[in-house]
């Protein structure tokens, strides 16, 4: 299978995944429990990616005071909580990581 075929198949499956419930929603009635669960989709899914990015290094757990990404990430969480400012969160987090990298490595 060449790369173009892989991209087309992967892209089509991604599109159908994104379309799935949007397309089916008014054609089937979803259970109430299911509807209540939907509110937890953003915090659950996005924090899965956050935790993996901050705590996994080269395929294994890196829970340590010398994990610069973890420290910078926790600082960014504090900034996001206090200010609710997206831009400031990204800038402070990135600056913190650059700063910590100099001292840790």
């Amino acid at each position: 299978m060449n790369l173009w075929m892989v991209m087309l198949a992967g892209g089509l499956l991604t599109f159908l995944t994104r379309l799935s419930f949007i397309w089916l929603f008014d054609r089937l009635t979803l259970p109430r429990l299911f509807r209540r669960a939907l509110r937890f989709v953003p915090p659950a899914v996005l924090s899965v990616i956050i935790f993996q990015e901050l705590l996994i290094r080269d395929g294994s757990l890196f829970l340590s005071i010398s994990n610069a990404r973890l420290l910078a990430g926790i600082l960014a969480m504090g900034v996001a909580w206090r200010t609710r400012n997206t831009l400031l969160t990204i800038i402070v987090g990135m600056a913190a990581l650059l700063f910590l990298q100099i001292f840790i490595s």
């Binding site: 990616i49 901050l54 990430g73 909580w81 997206t86």
Partner: peptide
């Protein structure tokens, strides 16, 4: 991860 933190935490 910083983008996702900014989206989730608030």
């Amino acid at each position: 991860p910083l983008t996702f933190i900014a989206l989730v935490v608030p």
